[in-house]
């Protein structure tokens, strides 16, 4: 069952019960509740300090005051936080995709006795609460000098994304018929080129889904970054945003809104381009095939 596979409209309408106008009003209200706060934030990020103080907050901005953004970017060090987030997210995405594709291949196509057991072991990671691993991880990282290091974050993000990524890859690779592999083997493919030349290209959709879903979990992480990073120059977007708000505080709304908008921006861009895959990937664990 896939959300995107659903084309036809169920034939029964509750419209008969509630009336079309009510339904339209409800839908409008729903959309307003979702969109309005976000739009309000963006609008406020463009207001001058005087506007924010003198006018009610729901007024539209009179112009585009981009000083908030440049303040947040340079003075608020959002440029540093952005860079750190981009590096950790990007590197751990590469590891996540590489490792989970390989394991997905090993679990579904290679033939060995304990593959079922390992599949179970990896899926165990989906249910482990972060709270359970945080303390030992911090102690381990402390001894291995991985505290205050982006590598510590990269390893953690990779490990924590693996379970869902492996689940997604396995489901996808399982469906690739063995006959394709047989043909390749007859043509002289080794087991390694079978993976790189056949399975991986055929699993392109799974790769995009894994990339997208783990992008959000890495970009939006707070608790790991908060625990393992204390140096300001290594903070990521989320911890940086908190630090930033504490510095600028409740008085300067403009830069806070600008910084929040900048933190949200990449997620909105990715979501606008790939929303179908995002929804499918994120609900994959909850919707059973």
């Amino acid at each position: 069952m896939r959300v995107s596979a659903i084309k036809q409209r169920p034939s029964v309408r509750i419209g008969g019960f509630l009336g079309k106008a009510t339904i339209r009003a409800l839908t409008g209200l729903l959309l307003l509740c979702v969109v309005f706060p976000i739009a309000w934030m963006i609008a406020c990020s463009l207001k001058t300090p005087a506007e924010l103080i003198n006018q009610p907050v729901f007024h539209l901005p009179s112009g585009f005051y981009f000083r908030n953004y440049s303040n947040a970017w340079v003075k608020g060090k959002m440029n540093v936080f952005y860079k750190n987030s981009v590096i950790t997210t990007f590197v751990s995405l590469i590891f996540t995709v590489g490792f989970s594709a390989m394991i997905g291949f090993a679990l579904t196509k290679l033939r060995w006795r304990f593959s079922g057991l390992f599949k179970l072991l990896f899926s165990f990671g989906i249910v482990v609460p972060v709270q359970m691993v945080l303390i030992p991880l911090f102690i381990m990282y402390n001894q291995l000098k991985l505290v205050n290091s982006l590598w510590g974050l990269i390893i953690t993000y990779t490990g924590f994304s693996l379970s869902l990524a492996i689940y997604l890859y396995s489901g996808y690779m399982q469906a690739i018929p063995n006959e394709i592999m047989e043909a390749a083997v007859i043509d002289g493919c080794s087991v390694y080129s079978l993976f790189t030349r056949i399975l991986l290209p055929l699993s392109k959709n799974a790769t995009v889904t894994v990339l997208v879903v783990s992008f959000f979990s890495k970009w939006n992480d707070l608790i790991f970054s908060q625990t393992f990073i204390s140096s300001t120059s290594l903070k990521t977007i989320q911890t940086g945003l908190l630090y930033f708000t504490n510095e600028f505080g409740s008085t300067e709304w403009g830069p806070v809104f600008a910084a929040s908008t900048m933190a949200i921006l990449p997620t909105i861009v990715v979501y606008s381009c790939l929303n179908k895959l995002v929804i499918e990937g994120m609900t994959a664990g909850a919707i059973k095939n």
Binding site: F95, G98, M102, L110, L121, G125, P136, L162
Partner: peptide
């Protein structure tokens, strides 16, 4: 070929190590 022990280890090990380090051991 699909029962090749070495290949299984090669495909499994890198991810398994990270997973064990970050999730299982803790």
């Amino acid at each position: 070929m699909l029962r090749d022990k070495k290949a299984i280890v090669v495909f499994l090990l890198p991810g398994l190590l990270v997973f064990a380090f970050v999730v299982l051991v803790p």
